[in-house]
Structure formats: structure tokens, C-alpha cells
């Protein structure tokens, strides 16, 4: 009688794959909105036309534009005016240190942000100056000269003090761009910084209280406490997070989370940080996976040879 096993095998595999395709790729394509990546081009923002002068920019940042009234630039020896908890009490969130802003954020985005924060951050549905709802970061109205030139100078200054874009690390990217709003418990990250290992419980509790106070202000500002992102790389996946930070409104219309305006490279580093937190063993998984596959293939070959040997006498 002819051997039916290959046919049976094909039928079993075909039905398995069909079921898999229906409940995984197909079902998910129907359940979730698909958002294409915009490649971090920020096409809605005007192009930068002026070339800035860093030295003029520095004067503006500490002078007319008053960035340092709210932001620290520790790299240039300019400390924060207030500690994180007090700043959050004042602005709702702690304005980030601008030391590396020039490398982390897109230049087009920065230029627009300085002139009109709510627009660049895509939170105009929450902050509308006409209705008296001001964004906590005051727009820069110009220092008497041509405003676009002045903005370009500020951006040039921020870029001149920042690390080179390729030196941005995952930690730096996450802590600057997301860390003021999101905790990552698995990396000990809180909105006010990494929680140190305290010797006394009293100190540890005092730190926790500060975090709670900060979160209270943040919740009031955002409408809800931004989630801890420890496991988000597994719960949302890389594509979702990447397109979400590019434009949160595309996924969750009306969300309070701002478009943070990072470059494509910074976004990659943010993802890497989240992978380190929630998919820590990915390198080990691939390496072990290869070895186990080799082992199992060898096992299967031996099993096949054994079967052939045993069955020789049976026919």
C-alpha cells in the first residue's frame, strides 16, 4: 500500500498554519489600528532656514529667553532653580535638564517648541492660550531681533554643549525624554531619579514620600499618572512604542502625553532602554536558542537512524 504519511503531514501542517494565521496575524490586524512610522521626519513642522550662533544662543538662554529660569543646564554649570518635587508643584512636571537636549531632540522640533510649546508637543487640545489655559513652558516671544534667528541661535547653543548624537546612551535618552513622567520600577527609575540603595529604612521612606508628592502633582497635571513602563516592551512591542512616541495622538486621540520630539536615533535608544528593562535576556535567549536547536536537530537525526535500524527487520 502506498505511504500516506507525507500527505497526512501536509494536511496537519496546513490546518495548523491556517488556524495560526487566523488567530494571530489576521485577528490582530483587525483588532488594532495600524499606524505607519513617519520616520521621525516631523513633516508637519516648518523647516529650519537660519544658521544659529551658539554664543548668542547662550546669552539668550540665560537672558531674554529665560530657559534657565525653569531648566537646569548642569553641563554648563547652571543648576536647577528648584528641586524636582517643588518644580512639579509649580509646573506640574519637572522641566528636564537641557544639557543634552541638542542631541536628543530633533532640531525642527526644538525650534517649534521654543516658539510654541503646546503646538510642538501636540497638546493644544489641553492648552489653549486664547482660553486662558497656558502651557507651563512659556513660549519665547523674541528678544527684539529676528525671532527665527534667535531661535536658531538657542538651538545651536544647545547642540554645541550636547554630546554627539551617536554618543546618546539608552539611559540618557530615556531619563531625559520620558523619565520625568514615567517610572520604570524594574530599573529602579522613579520620576525624580534613580532610587539609591539606602542604608536606613527612614531614608528610603523619605525618598518614597518625595516620589509620591511628585506623582501627585504630575497626576494633577496629566489627568492620570503615566504608567510604569517596565514591561511595556512585552505588552506593546517595539512598533507600537516607536510610533507612539513619534505621535501619541495617532494612537490615542486626545491623550495627555506630549509628542516628545526625539530623533529617530534617540527613539531607538529609548526602545533599547525598555528592552533592557522588560526583555533583559534577549541576547541570552537567541544564543541559547541556537545551541538548543543544534542539539535537538542532532537528537532528531539519531532518533531517525535508530528507527530505520529497528524497522529494517519489520518489513
Amino acid at each position: 500500500m502506498k505511504n500516506k504519511e507525507p500527505l497526512i503531514f501536509i494536511i496537519v501542517v496546513a490546518f495548523t498554519l491556517l488556524t495560526y494565521w487566523l488567530v494571530e496575524p489576521f485577528a490582530h490586524s483587525q483588532m488594532h489600528k495600524h499606524v505607519e512610522s513617519e520616520k521621525f521626519a516631523y513633516a508637519d513642522l516648518p523647516a529650519v532656514t537660519k544658521t544659529g550662533v551658539a554664543a548668542t544662543g547662550k546669552e539668550l538662554v540665560t537672558g531674554a529667553a529665560a530657559c534657565t529660569g525653569c531648566h537646569a543646564i548642569t553641563k554648563d554649570g547652571l543648576p536647577a532653580a528648584m528641586d524636582a518635587v517643588t518644580a512639579a508643584g509649580t509646573y506640574g512636571v519637572n522641566p528636564p535638564d537641557l544639557s543634552n537636549a541638542g542631541a536628543l531632540y530633533d532640531a525642527k522640533f526644538l525650534s517649534d517648541l521654543i516658539k510654541n510649546p503646546a503646538h510642538a508637543l501636540k497638546v493644544e487640545h489641553k492648552f489653549d492660550a486664547a482660553k486662558g489655559k497656558m502651557h507651563p513652558m512659556t513660549p519665547f516671544a523674541g528678544a527684539g531681533g529676528e525671532i527665527d534667528q534667535e531661535v536658531a541661535d538657542i538651538v545651536a547653543y544647545l547642540q554645541s554643549i550636547a554630546v554627539k548624537p551617536e554618543e546618546v546612551t539608552p539611559k540618557m535618552a530615556f531619563e531625559n525624554a520620558c523619565g520625568r513622567c514615567h517610572a520604570v520600577g524594574y530599573e529602579k527609575w522613579t520620576q525624580i531619579g534613580e532610587k539609591p540603595a539606602f542604608k536606613f529604612q527612614k531614608e528610603s521612606l523619605a525618598f518614597d514620600i518625595k516620589v509620591l508628592e511628585y506623582q501627585e502633582s504630575l497626576t494633577k497635571y496629566m489627568g492620570k499618572l503615566p504608567p510604569d513602563l517596565s514591561m511595556y516592551i512585552r505588552s506593546r512591542g517595539e512598533h507600537f512604542i516607536s510610533t507612539f512616541i513619534e505621535n501619541p495622538q495617532a494612537h490615542l486621540e486626545g491623550t495627555a502625553m506630549p509628542r516628545v520630539g526625539v530623533t529617530a536615533h534617540t527613539a531607538e535608544k529609548v526602545i533599547e532602554y525598555l528592552e533592557d528593562a522588560g526583555d533583559t535576556k534577549r541576547a541570552e535567549r537567541t544564543a541559547t536558542g541556537k545551541n538548543v536547536m543544534i542539539f535537538i536537530v542532532i537528537f532528531a537525526i539519531f532518533a531517525l537512524l535508530w528507527k530505520k535500524q529497528v524497522w529494517r527487520d519489520l518489513h
Binding site: 536558542g289 538548543v292 536547536m293 532528531a300 539519531f302 532518533a303 535508530w306
Partner: peptide, 17 residues
């Protein structure tokens, strides 16, 4: 055992990848 061998190739592929 031969079938188990082939099955385990499939199984561990799923586990890791």
C-alpha cells in the same frame, strides 16, 4: 522517538523565536 525528535525541533523553535 523519531516523531518526538521532529516535534521538539518545532517546539523549541517556538520557545526561542
Amino acid at each position: 522517538m523519531m516523531v518526538v525528535g521532529i516535534y521538539l525541533i518545532f517546539f523549541f523553535y517556538l520557545v526561542f523565536f
